[in-house]
Design a protein around this nucleic acid. Sequence first.
DNA 1: GCCGTTTTCGGCCCGACTGTTTTCAGTCG
Length: 593
Amino acid sequence: MNNREIARALREMALFLEMERVQFKPRAFEKAALAIEALDKPVEELWRKGGVKALREIPSVGEGISERIDELLRTGRCRELETMRRKTPVNVLELASIEGLGAQKIKLLYDALKIRTVDQLEKAARAGRIRRLAHFKGKSEENILRAIAFYREATARHPIATVLDLAHSIEARLRGLRTVQRVAIAGSVRRWKETIGDLDVLVAATRPDDAVRAFTSMPEVAHLYAKGPTKTMVRLRNGMDADLRIIPDRSFGAALLYFTGSKAHNIKLRRMAQEKHLKLSEYGLFRGRKLIAGATEEEIYAALGLDFIPPELREDTGEIEAAGNGKLPHLVEQGDLRGDLQAQTKWSDGTCSIEELAEAAKALGLEYIAITDHTRDLAMARGADEAKLRRQNREIHQLNARLRGIRILTGAEVNIRRDGSLDIADDLLDQLDVVGAAVHTWFDLPREEMTRRLIRAVENPRVDILFHPNARQLGHRAAVDADMDAVIDAAARSGTVLEINAQPDRLDLTDVQVRRAVEAGVKLCIDSDAHNSGDLRFPALYGVHMARRGWAEPGNIINTLPAEKMLATLKPRPKTAAKSRPARSRAASAARV
DNA sequence: GCCGTTTTCGGCCCGACTGTTTTCAGTCG
Protein backbone atom coordinates (compact mmCIF):
# COMPACT_ATOMS: atom_id res chain seq x y z
CA MET A 1 0.00 0.00 0.00
CA ASN A 2 1.56 3.31 -1.05
CA ASN A 3 1.63 6.63 0.76
CA ARG A 4 -1.20 8.13 -1.21
CA GLU A 5 -3.49 5.23 -0.40
CA ILE A 6 -2.65 5.45 3.30
CA ALA A 7 -3.24 9.19 3.29
CA ARG A 8 -6.57 8.60 1.54
CA ALA A 9 -7.69 6.18 4.21
CA LEU A 10 -6.76 8.62 6.98
CA ARG A 11 -8.50 11.48 5.24
CA GLU A 12 -11.61 9.35 4.80
CA MET A 13 -11.60 8.58 8.52
CA ALA A 14 -11.20 12.29 9.28
CA LEU A 15 -14.33 13.04 7.27
CA PHE A 16 -16.36 10.30 8.96
CA LEU A 17 -15.25 11.54 12.38
CA GLU A 18 -16.23 15.05 11.41
CA MET A 19 -19.68 13.83 10.41
CA GLU A 20 -20.07 12.49 13.93
CA ARG A 21 -18.95 15.88 15.23
CA VAL A 22 -16.09 14.28 17.09
CA GLN A 23 -13.86 17.00 18.51
CA PHE A 24 -10.25 17.48 17.37
CA LYS A 25 -9.70 13.97 16.08
CA PRO A 26 -10.63 14.87 12.50
CA ARG A 27 -7.84 17.45 12.46
CA ALA A 28 -5.37 14.92 13.84
CA PHE A 29 -6.19 12.44 11.07
CA GLU A 30 -6.11 15.17 8.46
CA LYS A 31 -2.71 16.37 9.68
CA ALA A 32 -1.33 12.85 9.62
CA ALA A 33 -2.60 12.39 6.06
CA LEU A 34 -0.84 15.59 5.01
CA ALA A 35 2.38 14.52 6.70
CA ILE A 36 2.32 11.18 4.91
CA GLU A 37 1.69 12.79 1.55
CA ALA A 38 4.66 15.06 2.17
CA LEU A 39 6.98 12.14 2.88
CA ASP A 40 9.37 11.31 0.08
CA LYS A 41 9.85 7.77 1.36
CA PRO A 42 7.36 4.93 1.13
CA VAL A 43 5.74 4.47 4.54
CA GLU A 44 5.71 0.76 3.81
CA GLU A 45 9.50 0.79 3.60
CA LEU A 46 9.85 2.54 6.98
CA TRP A 47 7.41 0.07 8.45
CA ARG A 48 9.19 -2.97 7.02
CA LYS A 49 12.48 -1.81 8.53
CA GLY A 50 11.28 -0.45 11.87
CA GLY A 51 7.72 -1.67 12.45
CA VAL A 52 5.04 0.39 14.21
CA LYS A 53 7.74 2.22 16.11
CA ALA A 54 9.19 3.66 12.91
CA LEU A 55 5.73 4.89 11.93
CA ARG A 56 5.61 7.06 15.04
CA GLU A 57 8.69 8.91 13.81
CA ILE A 58 6.46 10.44 11.13
CA PRO A 59 5.33 13.86 12.33
CA SER A 60 1.68 13.99 13.47
CA VAL A 61 1.56 10.20 13.66
CA GLY A 62 1.26 8.92 17.22
CA GLU A 63 0.10 5.78 18.93
CA GLY A 64 -3.43 5.61 17.57
CA ILE A 65 -2.73 6.47 13.96
CA SER A 66 0.41 4.35 13.77
CA GLU A 67 -1.61 1.30 14.79
CA ARG A 68 -4.20 1.99 12.12
CA ILE A 69 -1.47 2.35 9.49
CA ASP A 70 0.10 -0.87 10.75
CA GLU A 71 -3.23 -2.65 10.25
CA LEU A 72 -3.56 -1.17 6.76
CA LEU A 73 -0.09 -2.39 5.81
CA ARG A 74 -0.53 -5.84 7.35
CA THR A 75 -4.03 -6.61 6.12
CA GLY A 76 -4.78 -4.00 3.47
CA ARG A 77 -7.81 -2.95 5.48
CA CYS A 78 -8.76 -0.97 8.55
CA ARG A 79 -11.63 -2.45 10.50
CA GLU A 80 -12.56 0.85 12.10
CA LEU A 81 -12.79 2.53 8.69
CA GLU A 82 -14.95 -0.32 7.41
CA THR A 83 -17.28 0.10 10.38
CA MET A 84 -17.53 3.80 9.58
CA ARG A 85 -18.31 3.01 5.95
CA ARG A 86 -21.04 0.58 6.98
CA LYS A 87 -22.56 3.13 9.29
CA THR A 88 -22.64 5.88 6.63
CA PRO A 89 -22.11 4.15 3.30
CA VAL A 90 -21.20 7.21 1.25
CA ASN A 91 -18.27 8.02 -0.96
CA VAL A 92 -17.11 10.82 1.33
CA LEU A 93 -13.84 11.55 -0.41
CA GLU A 94 -15.53 12.01 -3.75
CA LEU A 95 -18.37 14.10 -2.32
CA ALA A 96 -16.05 16.25 -0.23
CA SER A 97 -14.12 17.25 -3.31
CA ILE A 98 -17.23 19.07 -4.50
CA GLU A 99 -16.75 22.74 -3.70
CA GLY A 100 -19.03 23.77 -0.87
CA LEU A 101 -19.65 20.27 0.48
CA GLY A 102 -18.13 19.27 3.77
CA ALA A 103 -18.79 16.50 6.24
CA GLN A 104 -21.94 18.04 7.70
CA LYS A 105 -23.68 18.63 4.41
CA ILE A 106 -22.70 15.21 3.12
CA LYS A 107 -24.30 13.66 6.20
CA LEU A 108 -27.43 15.71 5.72
CA LEU A 109 -27.69 14.67 2.08
CA TYR A 110 -27.31 11.03 3.03
CA ASP A 111 -29.74 11.13 5.94
CA ALA A 112 -32.43 12.90 3.95
CA LEU A 113 -31.93 11.60 0.40
CA LYS A 114 -29.55 8.62 0.71
CA ILE A 115 -27.08 10.35 -1.58
CA ARG A 116 -23.84 8.34 -1.69
CA THR A 117 -22.04 9.45 -4.84
CA VAL A 118 -21.49 12.52 -6.99
CA ASP A 119 -23.66 10.95 -9.70
CA GLN A 120 -26.56 10.57 -7.29
CA LEU A 121 -25.98 14.10 -6.07
CA GLU A 122 -26.21 15.39 -9.62
CA LYS A 123 -29.43 13.48 -10.29
CA ALA A 124 -31.02 14.76 -7.09
CA ALA A 125 -30.01 18.33 -7.90
CA ARG A 126 -31.43 18.10 -11.41
CA ALA A 127 -34.65 16.61 -10.08
CA GLY A 128 -35.01 19.55 -7.68
CA ARG A 129 -34.98 17.29 -4.63
CA ILE A 130 -32.18 19.14 -2.87
CA ARG A 131 -33.83 22.53 -2.65
CA ARG A 132 -36.48 21.00 -0.39
CA LEU A 133 -33.90 20.33 2.32
CA ALA A 134 -33.13 22.71 5.15
CA HIS A 135 -29.70 24.32 4.59
CA PHE A 136 -30.01 23.78 0.84
CA LYS A 137 -32.55 26.34 -0.22
CA GLY A 138 -32.63 28.05 -3.59
CA LYS A 139 -29.16 28.76 -4.91
CA SER A 140 -27.55 25.70 -3.37
CA GLU A 141 -28.81 23.45 -6.12
CA GLU A 142 -27.33 25.61 -8.88
CA ASN A 143 -24.10 25.86 -6.94
CA ILE A 144 -23.88 22.11 -6.54
CA LEU A 145 -24.44 21.51 -10.24
CA ARG A 146 -21.79 24.05 -11.15
CA ALA A 147 -19.37 22.58 -8.61
CA ILE A 148 -19.95 19.11 -10.06
CA ALA A 149 -19.13 20.43 -13.52
CA PHE A 150 -15.86 21.86 -12.17
CA TYR A 151 -15.10 18.64 -10.37
CA ARG A 152 -15.47 16.70 -13.59
CA GLU A 153 -13.07 19.07 -15.35
CA ALA A 154 -10.32 17.45 -13.29
CA THR A 155 -8.29 20.21 -11.74
CA ALA A 156 -4.75 19.05 -11.33
CA ARG A 157 -1.97 21.26 -10.06
CA HIS A 158 -0.22 23.30 -12.71
CA PRO A 159 3.55 23.27 -13.30
CA ILE A 160 4.94 26.60 -12.09
CA ALA A 161 6.31 27.47 -15.52
CA THR A 162 2.81 27.43 -17.01
CA VAL A 163 1.55 29.76 -14.26
CA LEU A 164 4.29 32.38 -13.96
CA ASP A 165 3.48 34.34 -17.11
CA LEU A 166 -0.20 34.45 -16.20
CA ALA A 167 0.64 35.56 -12.67
CA HIS A 168 2.95 38.29 -13.86
CA SER A 169 0.45 39.48 -16.43
CA ILE A 170 -2.33 39.77 -13.82
CA GLU A 171 0.08 41.54 -11.51
CA ALA A 172 1.03 44.02 -14.24
CA ARG A 173 -2.59 44.79 -15.10
CA LEU A 174 -3.47 45.54 -11.47
CA ARG A 175 -0.34 47.60 -11.03
CA GLY A 176 -1.44 49.67 -14.01
CA LEU A 177 -4.48 50.96 -12.11
CA ARG A 178 -3.96 54.44 -10.71
CA THR A 179 -5.75 53.68 -7.45
CA VAL A 180 -3.60 50.65 -6.69
CA GLN A 181 -0.63 51.24 -4.39
CA ARG A 182 0.94 47.82 -4.05
CA VAL A 183 0.51 44.46 -5.77
CA ALA A 184 2.10 41.13 -4.94
CA ILE A 185 1.74 37.54 -6.04
CA ALA A 186 1.84 35.37 -2.93
CA GLY A 187 1.03 31.69 -2.41
CA SER A 188 2.96 28.75 -3.73
CA VAL A 189 4.11 30.82 -6.72
CA ARG A 190 6.13 33.00 -4.36
CA ARG A 191 7.46 29.92 -2.59
CA TRP A 192 8.45 28.51 -5.99
CA LYS A 193 6.75 25.20 -5.53
CA GLU A 194 7.14 23.04 -8.62
CA THR A 195 3.40 22.87 -9.12
CA ILE A 196 0.78 25.48 -8.28
CA GLY A 197 -2.74 24.83 -7.05
CA ASP A 198 -4.10 28.36 -7.09
CA LEU A 199 -3.06 31.95 -7.50
CA ASP A 200 -3.05 34.46 -4.62
CA VAL A 201 -2.98 38.12 -5.57
CA LEU A 202 -2.62 40.88 -2.96
CA VAL A 203 -3.47 44.51 -3.50
CA ALA A 204 -3.28 47.65 -1.39
CA ALA A 205 -5.39 50.36 -2.95
CA THR A 206 -6.93 53.75 -2.29
CA ARG A 207 -10.08 52.59 -4.12
CA PRO A 208 -10.35 48.82 -3.73
CA ASP A 209 -13.42 48.64 -5.98
CA ASP A 210 -11.27 49.42 -9.02
CA ALA A 211 -9.01 46.46 -8.32
CA VAL A 212 -11.91 44.09 -7.64
CA ARG A 213 -13.64 45.17 -10.83
CA ALA A 214 -10.48 44.84 -12.88
CA PHE A 215 -9.83 41.41 -11.37
CA THR A 216 -13.30 39.95 -11.83
CA SER A 217 -13.62 41.27 -15.38
CA MET A 218 -10.36 39.81 -16.63
CA PRO A 219 -10.90 37.72 -19.77
CA GLU A 220 -9.28 34.76 -17.98
CA VAL A 221 -12.09 34.58 -15.40
CA ALA A 222 -14.48 31.68 -15.94
CA HIS A 223 -16.53 31.86 -12.76
CA LEU A 224 -16.96 34.08 -9.70
CA TYR A 225 -17.16 32.09 -6.47
CA ALA A 226 -17.39 34.92 -3.98
CA LYS A 227 -16.96 38.67 -3.95
CA GLY A 228 -16.54 40.82 -0.87
CA PRO A 229 -14.87 44.06 0.13
CA THR A 230 -11.64 42.31 1.10
CA LYS A 231 -11.74 38.90 -0.56
CA THR A 232 -12.71 37.83 -4.06
CA MET A 233 -12.38 34.32 -5.41
CA VAL A 234 -12.62 33.24 -9.04
CA ARG A 235 -12.02 30.23 -11.24
CA LEU A 236 -9.83 30.93 -14.26
CA ARG A 237 -10.32 29.43 -17.70
CA ASN A 238 -7.22 27.26 -17.33
CA GLY A 239 -8.95 25.52 -14.41
CA MET A 240 -7.03 27.31 -11.68
CA ASP A 241 -8.63 29.18 -8.83
CA ALA A 242 -7.39 32.70 -8.14
CA ASP A 243 -7.98 34.81 -5.03
CA LEU A 244 -7.69 38.57 -4.78
CA ARG A 245 -7.23 40.08 -1.35
CA ILE A 246 -7.55 43.79 -0.68
CA ILE A 247 -5.20 44.75 2.11
CA PRO A 248 -4.72 47.97 4.10
CA ASP A 249 -1.25 49.30 3.41
CA ARG A 250 -0.18 49.03 7.08
CA SER A 251 -1.02 45.30 7.01
CA PHE A 252 0.56 44.49 3.68
CA GLY A 253 3.50 42.59 5.17
CA ALA A 254 1.24 40.54 7.40
CA ALA A 255 -0.99 39.68 4.47
CA LEU A 256 1.97 38.83 2.27
CA LEU A 257 3.26 36.55 5.02
CA TYR A 258 -0.11 34.90 5.53
CA PHE A 259 -0.90 34.39 1.86
CA THR A 260 2.56 33.20 0.97
CA GLY A 261 2.13 30.32 3.40
CA SER A 262 2.71 27.52 3.60
CA LYS A 263 -0.24 26.73 5.76
CA ALA A 264 1.95 24.71 8.10
CA HIS A 265 4.43 27.59 8.34
CA ASN A 266 1.60 30.01 9.19
CA ILE A 267 0.13 27.77 11.85
CA LYS A 268 3.45 27.41 13.58
CA LEU A 269 4.07 31.18 13.47
CA ARG A 270 0.63 31.82 14.93
CA ARG A 271 1.19 29.36 17.70
CA MET A 272 4.54 31.01 18.41
CA ALA A 273 2.74 34.34 18.58
CA GLN A 274 0.20 32.87 20.99
CA GLU A 275 2.96 31.63 23.24
CA LYS A 276 4.25 35.18 23.39
CA HIS A 277 0.71 36.35 24.21
CA LEU A 278 0.41 37.93 20.80
CA LYS A 279 -2.00 37.33 17.96
CA LEU A 280 -0.93 36.97 14.36
CA SER A 281 -3.40 37.29 11.53
CA GLU A 282 -3.29 38.57 7.97
CA TYR A 283 -3.84 42.05 9.46
CA GLY A 284 -0.76 42.09 11.61
CA LEU A 285 0.86 41.02 14.82
CA PHE A 286 -1.15 42.31 17.78
CA ARG A 287 -0.65 42.67 21.49
CA GLY A 288 -4.21 43.01 22.68
CA ARG A 289 -5.67 45.41 20.16
CA LYS A 290 -2.38 47.16 19.51
CA LEU A 291 -0.70 46.52 16.16
CA ILE A 292 2.98 45.92 16.85
CA ALA A 293 4.09 44.77 13.37
CA GLY A 294 2.43 44.40 9.99
CA ALA A 295 3.73 46.65 7.24
CA THR A 296 6.56 44.29 6.27
CA GLU A 297 7.30 40.62 6.70
CA GLU A 298 10.71 41.53 8.10
CA GLU A 299 9.27 43.39 11.09
CA ILE A 300 6.88 40.56 11.88
CA TYR A 301 9.61 37.92 11.88
CA ALA A 302 11.77 40.27 13.97
CA ALA A 303 8.97 40.83 16.50
CA LEU A 304 8.66 37.05 16.85
CA GLY A 305 12.40 36.81 17.47
CA LEU A 306 13.13 35.25 14.08
CA ASP A 307 15.47 36.04 11.21
CA PHE A 308 13.75 36.76 7.91
CA ILE A 309 12.83 33.46 6.26
CA PRO A 310 13.03 33.40 2.45
CA PRO A 311 9.72 32.28 0.91
CA GLU A 312 11.26 29.15 -0.61
CA LEU A 313 11.94 27.78 2.88
CA ARG A 314 8.49 28.35 4.38
CA GLU A 315 7.31 24.75 4.61
CA ASP A 316 7.66 24.14 8.35
CA THR A 317 10.51 21.73 7.84
CA GLY A 318 12.83 23.28 10.40
CA GLU A 319 13.16 26.80 8.98
CA ILE A 320 11.38 28.44 11.91
CA GLU A 321 13.66 26.79 14.44
CA ALA A 322 16.70 27.70 12.33
CA ALA A 323 15.51 31.31 12.07
CA GLY A 324 15.25 31.43 15.86
CA ASN A 325 18.83 30.25 16.29
CA GLY A 326 20.44 32.35 13.58
CA LYS A 327 21.08 29.11 11.68
CA LEU A 328 19.25 29.76 8.41
CA PRO A 329 21.32 28.83 5.35
CA HIS A 330 22.77 31.56 3.13
CA LEU A 331 20.90 30.41 0.07
CA VAL A 332 22.37 30.32 -3.41
CA GLU A 333 21.30 33.25 -5.63
CA GLN A 334 20.93 33.79 -9.35
CA GLY A 335 24.10 35.85 -9.57
CA ASP A 336 26.17 33.04 -8.03
CA LEU A 337 25.99 30.89 -11.16
CA ARG A 338 29.12 31.06 -13.30
CA GLY A 339 28.61 28.20 -15.72
CA ASP A 340 26.24 25.67 -17.18
CA LEU A 341 27.10 21.98 -17.30
CA GLN A 342 24.46 20.59 -19.61
CA ALA A 343 23.57 21.83 -23.07
CA GLN A 344 22.69 20.17 -26.37
CA THR A 345 23.53 21.56 -29.81
CA LYS A 346 22.82 20.77 -33.45
CA TRP A 347 25.23 17.86 -33.02
CA SER A 348 22.31 15.98 -31.48
CA ASP A 349 18.81 17.32 -30.76
CA GLY A 350 19.57 20.98 -30.02
CA THR A 351 18.87 23.82 -32.44
CA CYS A 352 21.99 25.99 -32.01
CA SER A 353 25.57 25.58 -33.11
CA ILE A 354 28.16 25.30 -30.38
CA GLU A 355 29.33 28.81 -31.11
CA GLU A 356 25.81 30.29 -30.97
CA LEU A 357 25.18 28.64 -27.64
CA ALA A 358 28.53 29.79 -26.26
CA GLU A 359 27.89 33.38 -27.31
CA ALA A 360 24.42 33.27 -25.74
CA ALA A 361 25.90 31.92 -22.50
CA LYS A 362 28.47 34.71 -22.51
CA ALA A 363 25.72 37.29 -23.05
CA LEU A 364 24.03 35.97 -19.91
CA GLY A 365 27.23 36.57 -17.97
CA LEU A 366 28.35 32.93 -17.75
CA GLU A 367 32.06 32.09 -17.77
CA TYR A 368 31.79 28.56 -19.15
CA ILE A 369 29.40 26.10 -20.72
CA ALA A 370 29.72 22.36 -21.17
CA ILE A 371 28.51 20.90 -24.46
CA THR A 372 26.85 17.62 -23.61
CA ASP A 373 25.17 16.21 -26.67
CA HIS A 374 23.34 12.91 -26.55
CA THR A 375 25.27 9.75 -27.31
CA ARG A 376 24.97 6.65 -29.39
CA ASP A 377 22.03 4.71 -27.99
CA LEU A 378 19.75 7.69 -28.33
CA ALA A 379 19.44 7.34 -32.11
CA MET A 380 16.21 9.28 -32.04
CA ALA A 381 18.13 12.34 -30.85
CA ARG A 382 20.93 11.72 -33.34
CA GLY A 383 23.18 10.59 -30.54
CA ALA A 384 26.91 10.78 -31.14
CA ASP A 385 29.26 7.82 -31.27
CA GLU A 386 32.95 8.02 -30.33
CA ALA A 387 34.07 9.25 -33.75
CA LYS A 388 31.47 12.01 -33.81
CA LEU A 389 32.42 13.06 -30.27
CA ARG A 390 36.07 13.30 -31.31
CA ARG A 391 35.14 15.55 -34.22
CA GLN A 392 33.05 17.68 -31.91
CA ASN A 393 35.92 17.98 -29.44
CA ARG A 394 38.19 19.24 -32.21
CA GLU A 395 35.65 21.94 -33.07
CA ILE A 396 35.42 22.95 -29.42
CA HIS A 397 39.18 23.27 -29.13
CA GLN A 398 39.22 25.50 -32.21
CA LEU A 399 36.40 27.64 -30.83
CA ASN A 400 38.15 28.00 -27.49
CA ALA A 401 41.23 29.25 -29.30
CA ARG A 402 39.17 31.90 -31.04
CA LEU A 403 36.42 32.97 -28.60
CA ARG A 404 37.02 35.40 -25.75
CA GLY A 405 35.12 35.72 -22.49
CA ILE A 406 33.58 32.24 -22.51
CA ARG A 407 35.12 28.81 -22.13
CA ILE A 408 33.56 25.81 -23.78
CA LEU A 409 33.99 22.51 -21.98
CA THR A 410 33.85 19.22 -23.82
CA GLY A 411 31.32 16.74 -22.57
CA ALA A 412 28.51 14.33 -23.29
CA GLU A 413 25.14 13.24 -21.98
CA VAL A 414 25.90 9.54 -21.95
CA ASN A 415 23.08 7.01 -21.79
CA ILE A 416 22.79 4.74 -18.82
CA ARG A 417 21.88 1.36 -20.22
CA ARG A 418 19.45 -1.01 -18.61
CA ASP A 419 22.20 -2.66 -16.60
CA GLY A 420 23.79 0.62 -15.47
CA SER A 421 26.64 0.55 -17.98
CA LEU A 422 27.33 3.43 -20.38
CA ASP A 423 27.05 3.62 -24.18
CA ILE A 424 30.42 5.33 -24.81
CA ALA A 425 33.85 3.75 -24.49
CA ASP A 426 35.93 4.56 -21.42
CA ASP A 427 38.96 5.89 -23.29
CA LEU A 428 36.87 8.57 -24.93
CA LEU A 429 35.09 9.50 -21.70
CA ASP A 430 38.54 9.97 -20.18
CA GLN A 431 39.15 12.78 -22.66
CA LEU A 432 36.04 14.77 -21.86
CA ASP A 433 35.89 17.63 -19.37
CA VAL A 434 32.41 16.77 -18.13
CA VAL A 435 30.75 13.39 -18.32
CA GLY A 436 27.05 13.46 -17.52
CA ALA A 437 25.06 10.24 -17.45
CA ALA A 438 21.31 9.96 -17.74
CA VAL A 439 18.42 7.55 -18.03
CA HIS A 440 16.57 7.91 -21.34
CA THR A 441 15.25 4.39 -21.83
CA TRP A 442 13.83 1.57 -19.70
CA PHE A 443 11.90 3.92 -17.44
CA ASP A 444 9.67 1.25 -15.94
CA LEU A 445 12.11 -1.13 -14.29
CA PRO A 446 11.20 -2.54 -10.87
CA ARG A 447 12.44 -0.44 -7.96
CA GLU A 448 15.31 -2.73 -6.95
CA GLU A 449 16.62 -3.02 -10.49
CA MET A 450 16.31 0.71 -11.14
CA THR A 451 18.10 1.51 -7.89
CA ARG A 452 20.97 -0.88 -8.75
CA ARG A 453 21.17 0.63 -12.23
CA LEU A 454 21.43 4.23 -10.98
CA ILE A 455 23.92 3.35 -8.26
CA ARG A 456 26.11 1.50 -10.72
CA ALA A 457 26.17 4.59 -12.95
CA VAL A 458 26.85 6.90 -10.03
CA GLU A 459 29.71 4.71 -8.82
CA ASN A 460 31.29 4.60 -12.27
CA PRO A 461 34.60 6.48 -11.88
CA ARG A 462 34.04 8.16 -15.23
CA VAL A 463 30.62 9.58 -14.44
CA ASP A 464 30.99 13.13 -13.08
CA ILE A 465 27.33 14.07 -12.95
CA LEU A 466 24.04 12.20 -12.84
CA PHE A 467 21.76 14.28 -15.06
CA HIS A 468 18.02 14.66 -14.26
CA PRO A 469 18.18 11.79 -11.74
CA ASN A 470 14.44 11.03 -11.62
CA ALA A 471 14.01 11.24 -15.41
CA ARG A 472 10.55 12.65 -14.87
CA GLN A 473 8.61 15.10 -17.01
CA LEU A 474 5.97 17.05 -15.11
CA GLY A 475 2.48 16.16 -16.23
CA HIS A 476 3.88 13.70 -18.76
CA ARG A 477 6.16 11.04 -17.32
CA ALA A 478 6.40 9.95 -13.71
CA ALA A 479 9.73 9.77 -11.92
CA VAL A 480 11.49 6.45 -12.22
CA ASP A 481 10.84 4.20 -9.24
CA ALA A 482 14.12 4.04 -7.35
CA ASP A 483 15.38 4.38 -3.81
CA MET A 484 16.70 7.90 -4.31
CA ASP A 485 18.06 8.06 -0.76
CA ALA A 486 20.34 5.17 -1.65
CA VAL A 487 21.34 6.93 -4.87
CA ILE A 488 22.10 10.12 -2.92
CA ASP A 489 24.22 8.13 -0.46
CA ALA A 490 26.07 6.51 -3.37
CA ALA A 491 26.73 9.96 -4.84
CA ALA A 492 28.09 11.13 -1.49
CA ARG A 493 30.42 8.11 -1.24
CA SER A 494 31.68 8.30 -4.81
CA GLY A 495 31.95 12.09 -5.18
CA THR A 496 29.40 12.15 -8.00
CA VAL A 497 27.57 15.38 -8.66
CA LEU A 498 23.77 15.29 -8.79
CA GLU A 499 22.10 17.67 -11.18
CA ILE A 500 19.30 20.09 -10.48
CA ASN A 501 17.90 20.17 -13.98
CA ALA A 502 16.18 23.52 -14.53
CA GLN A 503 14.07 22.59 -17.56
CA PRO A 504 10.64 23.75 -16.39
CA ASP A 505 9.02 20.42 -17.22
CA ARG A 506 11.72 18.50 -15.38
CA LEU A 507 12.83 20.34 -12.21
CA ASP A 508 14.80 17.29 -11.24
CA LEU A 509 16.16 16.67 -8.47
CA THR A 510 13.07 17.58 -6.49
CA ASP A 511 13.31 20.12 -3.69
CA VAL A 512 13.12 17.41 -1.03
CA GLN A 513 15.91 15.44 -2.71
CA VAL A 514 18.09 18.55 -2.96
CA ARG A 515 17.74 18.99 0.77
CA ARG A 516 18.62 15.36 1.39
CA ALA A 517 21.64 15.69 -0.90
CA VAL A 518 22.79 18.88 0.84
CA GLU A 519 22.55 17.12 4.20
CA ALA A 520 24.49 14.14 2.84
CA GLY A 521 27.27 16.43 1.57
CA VAL A 522 26.60 15.63 -2.08
CA LYS A 523 27.88 18.14 -4.66
CA LEU A 524 25.18 19.60 -6.90
CA CYS A 525 25.02 21.59 -10.11
CA ILE A 526 22.22 23.67 -11.62
CA ASP A 527 21.94 23.16 -15.38
CA SER A 528 19.77 24.46 -18.17
CA ASP A 529 19.72 21.25 -20.23
CA ALA A 530 19.44 23.83 -23.01
CA HIS A 531 18.29 22.74 -26.45
CA ASN A 532 18.32 26.33 -27.72
CA SER A 533 19.83 29.59 -26.53
CA GLY A 534 16.65 30.77 -24.80
CA ASP A 535 16.76 27.75 -22.49
CA LEU A 536 19.98 29.06 -20.96
CA ARG A 537 17.86 31.28 -18.71
CA PHE A 538 16.26 28.31 -16.97
CA PRO A 539 18.85 27.92 -14.19
CA ALA A 540 18.38 31.51 -13.04
CA LEU A 541 14.61 31.41 -13.60
CA TYR A 542 13.76 28.05 -12.04
CA GLY A 543 16.81 26.04 -11.04
CA VAL A 544 18.10 28.44 -8.42
CA HIS A 545 14.72 28.49 -6.70
CA MET A 546 14.51 24.69 -6.61
CA ALA A 547 17.99 24.65 -5.08
CA ARG A 548 16.91 27.25 -2.53
CA ARG A 549 13.85 25.16 -1.65
CA GLY A 550 16.36 22.42 -0.85
CA TRP A 551 18.36 24.75 1.44
CA ALA A 552 21.35 24.82 -0.94
CA GLU A 553 24.10 27.35 -0.39
CA PRO A 554 26.58 28.46 -3.08
CA GLY A 555 29.10 26.05 -1.55
CA ASN A 556 26.85 23.11 -2.40
CA ILE A 557 26.66 24.03 -6.09
CA ILE A 558 29.80 23.40 -8.14
CA ASN A 559 28.91 25.71 -11.00
CA THR A 560 29.13 28.68 -8.67
CA LEU A 561 32.91 28.10 -8.93
CA PRO A 562 35.19 29.41 -11.69
CA ALA A 563 35.91 26.81 -14.38
CA GLU A 564 39.23 25.45 -13.08
CA LYS A 565 38.01 25.11 -9.52
CA MET A 566 34.77 23.54 -10.71
CA LEU A 567 36.68 20.98 -12.81
CA ALA A 568 38.89 20.19 -9.84
CA THR A 569 35.83 19.02 -7.90
CA LEU A 570 34.99 16.38 -10.53
CA LYS A 571 36.35 12.86 -10.41
CA PRO A 572 40.05 12.56 -11.30
CA ARG A 573 40.77 11.23 -14.81
CA PRO A 574 43.34 8.45 -15.39
CA LYS A 575 46.89 9.73 -16.09
CA THR A 576 46.88 8.72 -19.74
CA ALA A 577 44.01 10.96 -20.63
CA ALA A 578 42.98 14.50 -19.84
CA LYS A 579 43.75 16.17 -23.10
CA SER A 580 41.74 19.30 -22.74
CA ARG A 581 41.90 19.78 -19.06
CA PRO A 582 45.02 19.79 -16.96
CA ALA A 583 45.74 16.63 -15.02
CA ARG A 584 44.26 16.96 -11.59
CA SER A 585 46.03 15.87 -8.47
CA ARG A 586 44.21 13.83 -5.89
CA ALA A 587 44.45 16.75 -3.48
CA ALA A 588 42.89 19.18 -5.92
CA SER A 589 40.10 16.75 -6.66
CA ALA A 590 39.34 16.33 -3.02
CA ALA A 591 39.03 20.08 -2.55
CA ARG A 592 35.76 20.86 -0.91
CA VAL A 593 33.23 22.81 -2.85
C1' DG B 1 -5.49 11.84 18.33
C1' DC B 2 -1.23 14.57 18.69
C1' DC B 3 2.05 17.27 21.01
C1' DG B 4 5.59 19.79 24.31
C1' DT B 5 11.88 26.18 25.19
C1' DT B 6 4.69 27.37 29.95
C1' DT B 7 5.45 18.93 28.42
C1' DT B 8 2.41 13.66 30.21
C1' DC B 9 -2.48 17.35 30.64
C1' DG B 10 -4.88 20.66 28.35
C1' DG B 11 -4.83 22.74 24.68
C1' DC B 12 -5.62 22.48 19.40
C1' DC B 13 -4.71 29.21 13.82
C1' DC B 14 -7.64 32.87 12.28
C1' DG B 15 -10.68 35.30 9.52
C1' DA B 16 -13.78 35.88 5.18
C1' DC B 17 -17.78 34.71 2.56
C1' DT B 18 -22.24 32.34 1.68
C1' DG B 19 -26.77 31.33 2.58
C1' DT B 20 -30.45 32.32 5.01
C1' DT B 21 -31.12 28.69 10.85
C1' DT B 22 -32.12 37.27 11.22
C1' DT B 23 -27.08 35.70 14.80
C1' DC B 24 -24.66 31.74 13.02
C1' DA B 25 -23.03 27.18 11.02
C1' DG B 26 -20.51 25.42 7.32
C1' DT B 27 -16.81 25.73 4.36
C1' DC B 28 -12.57 27.36 2.68
C1' DG B 29 -7.80 28.65 2.53
